[in-house]
Structure formats: C-alpha cells, structure tokens
C-alpha cells in the first residue's frame, strides 16, 4: 500500500500552494484515473493521517474517479470504457490498447479561504 505516501505527496503539494498564495486550504480536489494504481478508499483513509500536524490539518480530500478513455481505431473516436476489465470499443467491439485518459493522479483544484 503506497496510499499513505501518495497522500503525503498531495499534502506537501497543497502546503506549497497554500504558502505561495497565502491562503488556508479547506479542501483538495483530486482526479484519480482508474489506471493510476491508487485505490480510492485507501487514499481517502490515509488522508487524515497525512494531514495531521500540517497546514492541511482538518481539510477534506475530494476525489473524482476518472474512467479510462481509449481511442477506437475502427470508429476513429475517443471511447469511454464501461469496465477496466475489457479494453474494447463499447460501440463496435474493436480492441484498443491506446489509452488517452485514465492514468491521472492530479490535484486539480484547492478550496481556499
């Protein structure tokens, strides 16, 4: 489980932004791709431990799970996969290994005051 170290990296990143902007962070918004290798529940569970004693103590982590988007070579379109167990176009069934989105592990925004 590396979620605690990921949570710590998130906190460090947010602290840096908070200091630079001179604000207090009340929530961190994170986008988590389904192929990021990070488990949402485990990350959410580590957040309070990672924030304890930091500028982020008491803040919330708001996680948005991002689905996998592939490029279908037959339709020549971006397609969102309904399941990460099956990398094929949901419209035409053509297999696709060309991942466009789904690996994100990104802090997208901060709620500050």
């Amino acid at each position: 489980m590396h979620e605690l170290s990921i949570a710590t990296s998130i906190v460090e990143l947010a602290e840096e932004e908070a200091e630079r902007r001179g604000v207090r962070v009340v929530a961190v918004h994170l986008t988590l791709g389904q192929l990021s290798g990070v488990v949402t529940e485990a990350l959410a569970g580590s957040y309070d431990i990672a924030t304890a004693g930091t500028l982020l103590e008491g803040s919330r982590l708001v996680i948005t799970e991002a689905p996998v988007v592939v490029f279908c070579p037959a339709c020549r379109e971006r397609r969102t996969l309904p399941s990460v167990q099956l990398f094929q176009c949901p419209q035409c069934g053509t297999p696709s290994a060309e991942v466009i989105e789904g690996r994100e592990l990104q802090v997208t925004a901060l709620e500050v005051e």
Partner: peptide, 18 residues
Amino acid sequence: MKPEPRLVEVRRNVLKHN
C-alpha cells in the same frame, strides 16, 4: 463572519517528481 471558501485551479501531477 467567515469568508466563503473559493476554488482555485491548480492542475499538478502528484507523481511529477518521480
């Protein structure tokens, strides 16, 4: 009165260093 929190866009990859 407490100020309303506002949203600031950041867009930073958490594993950027790696």
